[in-house]
Amino acid sequence: MAESTAAVNSGMLSRLGNWLQARWQSIITAIPLFWLLLFFLAPFFIVLKISVAESLIASPPFSSLFEWGEGLLPSVSVTAENYSYLWEDDLYVRTYLSSLKIASISTLLCLLVGYPIAYAISRADGAMRYILLFLVILPFWTSFLLRVYAWMGLLADQGTFNNLLMWLGVIEKPIRLLYTQFAVYVGIVYSYLPFMILPLYANMEKLDNSMQEAAADLGARPAAGFFTVTLPLTAPGILAGCLLVFIPATGEFVIPDLLGGGNVLMIGRVLYGEFNSNHDWPVASAVAIALLIVLVLPMMLYHRVQARNAEQNT
């Protein structure tokens, strides 16, 4: 009797084992999927819901999506007013354009600074390569916020740079560095440079040295060889790095707030203002959703290129 129970148990166990074995891949992928669902999609739908609600002076400060009236079915109240408001008040359009401009220029600057650095690291040998890589990653060990505050100290009117320049006699009185667009560019390029360097490095590390030698051998001077061979072959790294900088830079809030003060229009600051100063949650949500739509396009482009590269490599 006991024996047969054991047999049944072991039979069930082995069936469970088989089930797990057959489905382990889906089980493992289900974990991050669930994570994304919970922490990305759910908040997204909440924001989406608020963005089509009406602003109220209440708690919460917006109308609810469903109204339970007399009928059996709830009536749904949706408004596109918040979105049309974004279009009507040119502050928002100008802010979006300004954000895109600042993010684009910062991305370009990151690329110009990061490309030679990544190239040098990928061509350094042995231990040196790892030391250089380590130095690129090192700033992450300090809080991002602290590093931005440090830049405030460096750029302030009585800050390190001004004092140094005055001591050297280059300038007589402090020049305005902090709370300018310049400061925002410095902050963004500084903060996002590793996100440019690392994907570029990953791409360049695989670059076969003999490609450039073949170009030179066939008569290409260094500049021609760079533009016809090295640059096209590192294009996937350039694209990855640019998107990793551009996307977060567009929505950046901390850097324009701390280094740009009131002088730099960026969408992150407007969004913050709508939520916290105006308490207009629906408009703030609409600003966020519109930003997402603006950014989804380059992301989709990136994924398509990635998929095509993966296909080519197999």
Partner: peptide, 20 residues
């Protein structure tokens, strides 16, 4: 003389064909 000015061409062991 740099490689791009030599009347010499090379066939690389890895062939080094430009993949793009």
């Amino acid at each position: 003389v740099p490689p791009y000015e030599r009347p010499v061409n090379m066939m690389f062991q890895s062939y080094a064909l430009f993949p793009h």
